[in-house]
């Protein structure tokens, strides 16, 4: 007899029934579809044990690593504590320890969490200010022992949170940080794979974390190609850092792209996603990361798939960048 803990309640499994069946039998409102492990509508996360391999069939390896599983094909072997995706509601207090402009409308923000916060480079958290305004931001650094988190905040003209960051937030003030979410992050074990990363605007933030994670923590030896897109050169706010990284790592290649006027030969003219897809026509066995404007992400995902990348190896994070 195994027990399932869900939404602070315990449910007992009957012989050989799936986790989904146990929940539905007990009138729990959870999403589901095919009941055969195909549609992934019922995706959930196991909080204590690693779910059986069989119940993770077809999931992205980043999801598998975070103990996501499909309750409709999971017959529990042990007691399980489970939750729906993105429902964790704990907030950690963190202090602003650095704030500086990266460009005309991008601010670099560094927070120090009072408690350890587990994350994979490339994931995002929700930030909440005292007024209760909540926005999602990608983490731009790699996990560290000092619990520091870095962000690239795009200042939007009428952005409630970003205007607050620009105009009111000061060193020493506190923000609440949610647990890290999202499956757009590096996964170890395939260090020879070629990586293609395309980001527009502050879509660079998660990519920068992923690249550093690959190079510094996982000794990635496959090629890493980053295409960063902006309208004008001021939006290529990490050019110096990335050129430095290029010097230090022979397998890392940085292509800054400008969709507007190009005055210097240092930059490639055109949209970052188009340039990347034209340069690499065959993406079989590549791992692809796409972050930034939703339209760009959607379009590029489709093209990357049609050019041979597997859907399971295309990781995306779409936001106003």
């Amino acid at each position: 007899m195994t027990r399932i803990k869900f939404d602070d309640q315990f449910f007992e499994s009957e012989n050989d029934e799936t986790v989904l069946h146990t929940l539905l039998r007990n009138n729990q409102q959870v999403p589901y579809g095919c009941k055969a492990g195909a549609c992934q509508c019922c995706l959930m996360r196991s909080l204590e044990n690693t779910p059986s391999e069989k119940s993770q069939v077809g999931l992205k390896d980043t999801q598998q690593k975070q103990n996501y599983f499909l309750p409709c094909i999971c017959i529990p072997e042990n007691d399980m504590t489970i939750e729906l995706p993105n429902t964790g509601a704990t907030w950690l207090e963190s202090e602003v320890i650095e704030k500086k402009p990266l460009s005309e409308n991008v601010i670099f923000l560094k927070l120090k969490s009072k408690e350890p916060l587990a994350f994979f480079a490339g994931q995002f958290v929700n930030l909440k200010n005292e007024a209760g305004v909540i926005r999602s931001y990608s983490i731009a650094n790699i996990p560290n022992s000092t619990h520091e988190l870095e962000f690239h905040i795009r200042i939007l003209p009428n952005g409630q949170f970003s205007r607050f960051v620009a105009d009111e937030l000061e060193i020493g003030m506190l923000l609440s940080v949610s647990h890290a979410q999202g499956s757009c992050h590096y996964v170890e074990g395939k260090s020879e794979q070629s990586l293609l990363l395309v980001g527009t605007g502050t879509g660079l933030a998660p990519l920068y974390g992923i690249i550093r994670d690959a190079l510094e923590n996982h000794n990635h030896i496959g090629k890493i190609h980053l295409f960063h897109g902006s309208r004008d050169a001021s939006g290529l706010y990490f050019e110096d850092k990335l050129r430095e990284m290029e010097k230090n790592h022979s397998n890392f290649h940085y292509t800054p792209c400008l969709s507007g006027e190009v005055k210097s030969r240092k930059y490639t003219k055109g949209r970052a996603n188009q340039i990347a897809l034209e340069k690499f026509i065959k993406l079989d066995r590549w791992r692809v990361y796409l972050c930034g404007q939703p339209d760009m992400v959607l379009q590029t995902k489709k093209m990357a798939y049609m050019q041979g990348a597997s859907l399971k190896e295309i990781y995306t994070d779409a936001f106003l960048s």
Binding site: C34, A38, C39, Q40, G58, K301, K302, Y305, L311
Partner: peptide, 13 residues
């Protein structure tokens, strides 16, 4: 405009 993973899962079914 459809979610590609979900669409691929349906194609698989």
């Amino acid at each position: 405009g459809v979610d590609m993973e979900k669409q691929a899962a349906k194609q698989k079914a």
